[in-house]
Design a protein around this nucleic acid. Structure first.
Lengths: 101, 101
DNA sequence: TGACTATATGCCAGAAATGGCATAGCATGG
DNA sequence: CCATGCTATGCCATTTCTGGCATATAGTCA
């Protein structure tokens, strides 16, 4: 956003800022969220690469298709632990994990 | 263990194998555990580097000293999510996280 | 020795994540 | 059009994790 537009908006009573500011996220929160997002993308990518369905992956890691869907969609009820279990079930190594982050 | 000793043990009725086999861990489990362990080590290292006490780190990440102790000791009731929060609270970046894994 | 600081361990009520199920959406091919 | 295969979403009982507190242990210094 250029300074001009910003001025006009603020003159009209708008608060201008980033999403991060709006949500009161600090750097640690941001890193955490971005890491999680990167991991979910890695899961989807690896699963597709192996031509597995969500059901198949779910069986591998002894969970349900709905959980796998939520993992890949970045559902907030999914922990990093579960995402890692998915990645490793897909045969990822620690090195590959590190690259994905 | 050399083949000789193995034979002698088995002749005497012992089962010979790795810890991994004994605990029925597959490769995915192993990678997961090792990753978690690497992360806990990174937390301890970074905290020491910054000369923080467990209490100080606990305040940073809005948890308790006992949790921090458990993180660093690899307590099984600690999730990877919490470990990551600790690392990021210590100012680690995603890149540093990747290196730690 | 005793006081002090840091870390470790046990416990538990409350909070969050999980698996499982149902079902809805959405392509693609017949 | 309807099947069929795959993915998405909602719900909820059970399981797991968390924060907080108490207390124990270990190290250091006076």
């Amino acid at each position: 956003m250029n300074a001009d537009k910003r001025k006009r908006l603020e003159a009209a009573g708008w608060k201008v800022g980033t999403v991060q500011e709006f949500l009161n996220l600090n750097d640690a929160d941001m890193e955490y969220i971005e890491t999680k997002l990167a991991l979910t993308k890695a899961v989807k990518l690896q699963r597709k690469r192996k031509n597995l369905t969500q059901v198949a992956l779910a069986e591998c890691m002894k969970t349900s298709q709905s959980r796998v869907a939520k993992i890949e969609k970045g559902d907030p009820t999914v922990s990093v632990d579960l995402i890692l279990r998915a990645l490793f079930a897909l045969g990822a190594t620690r090195k590959e994990l590190a690259n994905a982050i």
